[in-house]
Design a protein around this nucleic acid. Sequence first.
DNA 1: AAAATTTGACCGGG
DNA 2: CCCGGTCAAATTTT
Length: 363
Amino acid sequence: MEKRKSMEWEQKTLTSELTQGKELAKQLMNNLHPSASQEKRDILISKILFSYEKALSLLKRDVGSDGEYNHIPNTMLESPASFGNSSPMSEISDQDCKNKNVFKKRKTMPRWTEEVKVYSGTGVDASLDDGYSWRKYGQKDILGATYPRGYYRCTHRGTQGCLATKQVQKADADPSTTVVTYRGEHTCSQVLQLARSSASSLAKQASTGNQNATREAEKPKASQEMSFSFGAGLRVKTEDLDTREDDIFPSFSFPSTPIEPENVGDHIFCATLMENDLMDGYSPTFASPAATFEPDYLQAVSPCQMSSFGLGHDYVQTSESGLSEIISAPTSVTNSPIGDFGFSLDDLDFHHFENTESFAYES
DNA sequence: AAAATTTGACCGGG
DNA sequence: CCCGGTCAAATTTT
């Protein structure tokens, strides 16, 4: 059916991803002058890694034969067992073929969910900052779990109707690990913010008056600072609950040559990532928080917003099971000037409405 | 004062 | 009725 289509699509994405990586590497090479700031290089490196990571995830997904998507084999992380096993998602993935209908009930089903394990460095800053701003709206004790689960929604709900949501819960097995489950996509024009927790002390100083520390924190007027101090994020699973066929993959008629390498200026790496992200907004690519945006909505926003990763460290969380893919947090990017292109808005809108599910609150 | 978090009530599915 | 998820009033933080 349209599986073919999606494969084509993935291939395209893959290609551009690799191309991008190559391009970035090139940039890096040209950036070797001692004059070049270290951070700039770090950023490039982060991006390169990100590209590879992404490309790899695409490949992996392809390999799978069953159903729609298939993700990473990393489901070995057992810890918050209660989670992975009993979660509705897993069930679904099992029987997905048989009752696609079930999905039809777009009532409460989020577009997709993505579970990410984050190892937060011991003590100090156990920052779990993915660059988005969330507002906590609830907390619950979950039956088998030792730690409560926190519920967050994008701060820009209400103002921009962003439906992204996430749940955070410490792994009862290993408190140093936190399981973050993202659901829904960001439709807001997210202006990434500097993690306050991560460099808490530093950040604080910065905001308090040490503008020095802020140097890089605010050059782009758009200020998309992302300090991605994601610890080693262990991607555990990524599920796409939506199996409808017609929906995703709108006909995106993007330039077949997404990125014109040459255009990518030295410091303008923004454009590049965009499309890709744009595209896989529908397929949970990988490292969560990143990548998802849609061109519609009120985001007039700057044509080119970029994000820089906080090239943080990627700790390899080795603790249990040396597995782990290190994922240095990627980041997202935003929308484009493209607002109205080949995107069949209908699809998108539809999409939104669906998501609008339980939206009728707001007094 | 405004924004974010806390926390028990409330709601809907199973 | 239980449980996970969300609401919303009260409260804390900024």
